[in-house]
Design a protein around this nucleic acid. Structure first.
Lengths: 135, 135
DNA sequence: CGCCAATATTGGACTTACTCCTATAGTGGA
DNA sequence: TCCACTATAGGAGTAAGTCCAATATTGGCG
């Protein structure tokens, strides 16, 4: 059985691009491409770093919501850059994200705990008998 | 500032319906409505338990992929039920989910760690000065 | 010079995992 | 009669991504 296209590999899990980007921006201004390089160097993604165009779209959306702001910086030897920084609203949003992610981690912990309670036959072995129709 | 519609509240985070449902089914047969009641009693969701119609759709999709199978059970005093059980392929998928979620939890841990490193001014306080244009 | 890689931003079209609302249908209680 | 509960299901929409392609500038290699 081939599970390489199955969500169980984690390829459809959200990569939490917005909170990650806001966390980077909390330390100082960055442009989109630099953010992407940080994400790429960040190694811990299930199935590669987030897509570049998605990062730019997230930035644009966060700007329209007032969480980041940008200005064009001319770039001698290269195309101009759009430089992003976090606003006060963005910092407040990030603080909420932190609480939310702590709760979310606890929720995932609980699910992993349920999985830990399963016997080898229930989890993976062949031919485990079923029983107990609820109703 | 009102953040009640913002993703930072966690309302757009995935609820991991499929691995959760598969974990319940690993312990024995269940029908959709009973699964929903288990999810509702499960308390740890950011913004309420998953939507019922989404649970049915997940079950249908997992059945088409061979991870669960179902049979109709007649129900004296009520409409018939579609009773689901986990297949061997489903158990193998669930085992992969477990590894994936352990990795995913580590990834969230790392992000929370970055957030922990931020100073109060960087995270939430008013008027923190920005500096350090990368590039 | 022609071509390719890296830097840098952006849009079109698509997928996944949900959401909310509605429909259908039987049972039992006020 | 009307409503709540049990039980399944579809239409339409949203959020957060994906892949692919377009645009533009600079610099290195042959």
């Amino acid at each position: 059985m081939d599970f390489s296209d199955c969500p169980c590999t984690g390829k459809t899990l959200t990569k939490l691009v917005k909170p990650l980007v806001m966390t980077f921006l909390a330390k100082g201004q960055l442009h989109g491409y630099a953010i992407q390089r940080l994400l790429e160097s960040q190694g811990s993604f299930q199935s590669g770093p987030p897509d570049l165009s998605g990062v730019y779209r997230s930035l644009k959306e966060m700007e329209s919501q007032g969480y980041v702001e940008s200005s064009w910086i001319s770039n001698d030897g290269g195309p101009p850059k759009r430089c992003f920084s976090l606003t006060d609203n963005g910092r407040a949003c990030l603080a909420i994200w932190k609480k939310t992610l702590i709760d979310y981690r606890a929720q995932i912990d609980e699910l992993i705990g349920f999985m830990d309670e399963l016997s080898p036959e229930e989890l993976d072995a062949k031919g485990g008998e079923r029983q107990g129709v609820e109703g």
